[in-house]
Amino acid sequence: MNNNNSAHGRRGPYEVNAARILSGLTPAGTVLPPARSYSAKAATAGHPRASLTTVVAAYKRLFTENLTVKDQSLRSVVRPDAVLPQEVLNAIDTLLTAARRHSSSLEHVILATRLKGSAVAGDEYPDRDDFDGPEDPRGPYEFDGRHDDPDDVDFPTS
């Protein structure tokens, strides 16, 4: 668990643990403390965002995002491949510095990274899930409703 009180004040248990795992501060093979212990210790230290429910959800998300695995005792253990190499961490720092310098939004940087990653992997058409935002219920073409009504005089019948 992170001893830096200010980190918990701004970020929840997921963000704190994910950042520590990816950066290597929590090394591969580390067994995370039980959710109840983590929550109790954080609450004692005055961290309002570390309820048991929040910690359990954070541990599930760490597992879902392949940062941890469950051992035979169902404890959360940091995956061997979850820690990013220093070269990647340095590249992220460089990217974020450049984005801040050019006032680029973090959301746009993430989207561009995901799309570029898809293109590099040879996926010409990224999954629909890669795009956030509402879908047009009319589909890709202009739709005025007349084409569904055979009684409409403009609708060709033969």
Score class of each variant (00 low, 15 high):
1 M>G: 09
2 N>R: 12
3 N>E: 08
6 S>K: 11
8 H>C: 01
10 R>Q: 11
10 R>H: 04
10 R>N: 07
16 V>K: 00
19 A>E: 02
24 G>A: 04
25 L>G: 05
25 L>T: 05
28 A>T: 01
28 A>Q: 00
30 T>I: 00
30 T>M: 02
31 V>P: 00
32 L>K: 00
35 A>C: 07
38 Y>F: 15
38 Y>H: 15
40 A>Q: 15
43 A>R: 15
43 A>T: 13
43 A>N: 14
47 H>P: 01
49 R>K: 15
49 R>V: 01
50 A>T: 12
52 L>F: 13
52 L>P: 05
53 T>L: 10
53 T>G: 15
53 T>S: 15
54 T>M: 12
55 V>S: 04
55 V>Y: 03
56 V>D: 11
57 A>Y: 05
57 A>F: 05
57 A>D: 13
58 A>N: 04
59 Y>I: 00
59 Y>M: 00
60 K>I: 03
61 R>G: 06
64 T>G: 07
64 T>M: 04
65 E>M: 01
66 N>Y: 03
67 L>D: 00
68 T>S: 02
68 T>G: 02
70 K>Y: 02
72 Q>T: 10
73 S>W: 07
73 S>V: 02
74 L>C: 00
74 L>R: 09
74 L>Q: 06
74 L>T: 02
75 R>H: 04
76 S>P: 01
77 V>G: 02
79 R>H: 07
80 P>A: 09
82 A>E: 09
83 V>N: 10
84 L>H: 05
84 L>W: 13
85 P>S: 12
85 P>N: 13
86 Q>N: 10
88 V>S: 10
90 N>Q: 14
92 I>H: 03
92 I>G: 00
93 D>M: 09
96 L>V: 04
97 T>Y: 08
98 A>I: 08
98 A>R: 14
99 A>P: 05
100 R>I: 05
103 S>H: 12
104 S>I: 11
105 S>D: 06
106 L>M: 11
107 E>S: 12
108 H>T: 11
109 V>R: 05
113 T>D: 03
117 G>C: 10
121 A>T: 05
124 E>F: 09
125 Y>H: 10
129 D>S: 15
138 R>G: 13
138 R>P: 03
139 G>C: 04
143 F>H: 10
146 R>P: 06
148 D>M: 12
150 P>Q: 11
150 P>I: 13
154 D>R: 14
155 F>G: 03
156 P>A: 11
157 T>L: 08
158 S>C: 08
